[in-house]
């Protein structure tokens, strides 16, 4: 694989890393920091990548480790959250609220459940690869994904009920 081909692949993967980091951190600045931190670690660890190996899984794994060590350092997630920018194309107010709600609901989940949900939503990845990227056994990954989705569904359901009551 030539450098240009590698760079094309990497650009695609980095875009994926950034989207994933954005949803996890909900802060453009933190997300960019996290992606850059992961890239720096990847450069230092370039020798651990086996040519022909799955570059995306390798990168997500590094991003995760960076994210976890960052969490440990900070102990508390930062409160400063960016608001969603105004939608450019669609002016669907209801949809916008629902998107805000899903982010708020994700926020209430334990980190360990939030990660598999977001990863699987954003990246077309086999469960086996996703488990590898998150550094957990496949069984653990699947129960966290299932539990997290159930919990998310419940939180979103409660939000809807609250909203309905307000409307009525």
């Amino acid at each position: 694989m030539a450098r240009s081909e590698l760079l094309d692949q990497l650009n695609g993967h980095v875009a994926g890393l950034r989207r994933y980091a954005l949803v996890l951190t909900r802060n453009a600045h933190d997300a960019e920091d996290l992606v850059q931190d992961a890239l720096i670690k990847a450069i230092a660890a370039a020798d651990t990548w086996q040519p022909g190996g799955d570059l995306r899984v390798w990168l997500f794994r590094i991003l995760h480790n960076a994210f976890i060590s960052d969490l440990r350092k900070k102990k508390v997630r930062r409160e400063a959250r960016i608001a969603l920018p105004e939608p450019v194309v669609q002016d669907d107010q209801t949809r916008r609220i629902e998107v805000q709600q899903v982010l708020a609901a994700l926020e209430q989940l334990p980190e360990a459940q939030r990660r598999p949900i977001v990863l699987v939503a954003l990246e077309e990845m086999s469960y086996a690869d996703a488990a590898k990227a998150l550094g957990v056994p496949l069984g653990t990954f699947m129960s966290r994904l299932g539990r997290g989705r159930q919990a998310l569904r419940q939180i979103l359901g409660e939000m809807k009920v609250t909203k309905l009551r307000l409307v009525i």
């Binding site: 694989m1 954005l22 960019e32 850059q36 450069i43 939503a121 954003l122």
Partner: peptide, 30 residues
């Protein structure tokens, strides 16, 4: 909804340092 949230959060401008680091990683890997 999670995908739409990612779309909405995505900044339009690419970060120059991220791009430079990506190129450096491509060099190292190749």
């Amino acid at each position: 909804l999670i995908r739409e949230a990612a779309d909405a959060l995505e900044p339009s401008a690419a970060d120059l340092r991220t791009a430079a680091l990506t190129r450096k990683l491509a060099d190292r890997l190749s």
